[in-house]
């Protein structure tokens, strides 16, 4: 294999020209995904998760969008490809599932048509073949009576069924990488669990890599192998899932963890809230981007932007004070690293 990672994003900067000037929604994001692993991308709304995801498939309006950096898929920089070449990759090598299954399927075509379209777009096969494969895909994604469902329109299916149909569509050409942008956010909790389980099963069958974008840390803990935490267009922490949950180093990650309600412990205690709101992209703080909301911020934080640095082989963080939050064991590991 000529490439190191299935997908490697290097210093990606995605900016939009708007009426109020140029806005950089993703500012120097780097991470990678290997085959068979699920990487979670976590953060509040507006932190650049979805823009990162849509940058990978280049789904943003390119007249108004400017990309810098590299997105290497199997060693090829996707940002350098022509639109025709990108169309060969979309839905074939890399697929995407979107947040809202209610609006992500075209209301005027049957789900069978929409799934079969993905197959015939990329593979030479007859309409009957595409159709029978569609039925098979629907069966594999757990849709009951797929022979009938295949003829139904999106509005005739429930939310969970629609998301299953979306997954079937995404998997139609056996992609190597699946980008799931908040795939369970719009669904009931019980359906969420089923969909996540389905994605896990399908991943094990096919060894594809998954990028799971979510703001739900519970989902991350359940299915991800590695986690990238984003804040205001930057990666502020990256670690494998155990390390991150045991020892979150960035105050923002810590805040996110504390903001998850738990059933045990003192329930009278108020739920932790990260103070303030994600600032607008027009008013990016000068130093550390999280400084205005951080309880540990000092003068260095508000003046100099920290860099993402490796604290241990398993963990990177973008914080001046990360060392303070480390436990003994990690300190030891870090000495080894130095």
């Amino acid at each position: 294999m000529a490439y190191k990672h299935l997908l490697e994003i290097k210093e990606l900067k995605t900016s939009f020209s708007t009426e109020r000037g140029v806005v950089t929604a993703v500012d120097g994001v780097s991470f990678h995904v290997d085959a068979g692993e699920t990487v979670g991308v976590v953060g509040e709304s507006g932190c650049g998760k979805s823009v990162t995801a849509e940058s990978i498939l280049r789904l943003l309006d390119e007249k108004k969008t400017n990309y810098l950096g590299e997105i290497c898929y199997q060693g090829t920089n996707l940002l350098a490809l022509s639109i025709d070449q990108m169309q060969q990759i979309r839905g074939n090598e890399i697929s995407m599932i979107f947040q809202d299954p209610m609006t992500s399927l075209n209301p005027v075509f049957t789900i069978g048509d929409q799934i079969a379209e993905a197959i015939t777009q990329h593979q030479k096969c007859s309409k009957q073949d595409a159709f029978s494969r569609t039925v098979e895909l629907l069966r594999r994604t757990g849709i009951p009576a797929p022979e009938q469902r295949v003829h139904e329109y999106p509005h005739e299916l429930s939310g969970g069924m629609r998301q299953r149909a979306m997954i079937a569509m995404a998997l139609a050409c056996q992609p190597n990488l699946l980008i799931a942008d908040e795939p369970t956010t719009a669904l009931d909790v019980t359906i969420q669990a089923q969909i996540l389980e389905l994605m896990q099963e399908l991943k094990q069958e096919s060894q594809m890599g998954i990028i799971l974008i979510t703001h739900d840390l519970g989902v991350v803990a359940e299915v991800c192998t590695r986690v990238v935490v984003m804040y205001l267009g930057q990666v502020i922490e990256e670690a494998d899932v155990e390390t991150l949950f045991e020892n979150p180093l960035h105050p923002y990650t810590q805040g996110l963890m504390k903001a998850v309600p738990t059933i045990d412990g003192d329930r009278k205690q108020k739920l932790h809230v990260i103070k303030g709101m994600v600032p607008s992209l027009h008013q990016i703080p000068q130093g550390c981007r999280f400084a205005p909301r951080c309880e540990y911020a000092d003068s260095q934080c508000s003046q100099e932007p920290p860099q993402l640095h490796a604290i241990s082989p398993k963990q990177k963080v973008r914080c001046w004070h990360a060392a303070k939050f480390m436990t003994q064991g990690e300190e030891h590991e870090r000495h080894h690293l130095d």
Binding site: N92, T103, S104, N106, H122
Partner: peptide, 26 residues
């Protein structure tokens, strides 16, 4: 601007198909 247009593009469809099939019908 609708989501299913993004879905159609993410499927790898040609832009003419996206516009004249998926968008125009709607």
């Amino acid at each position: 601007a609708d989501n299913y247009i993004k879905t159609a593009r993410a499927k790898g469809l040609k832009e003419t198909m996206v516009i004249y099939k998926h968008a125009l019908r709607n």
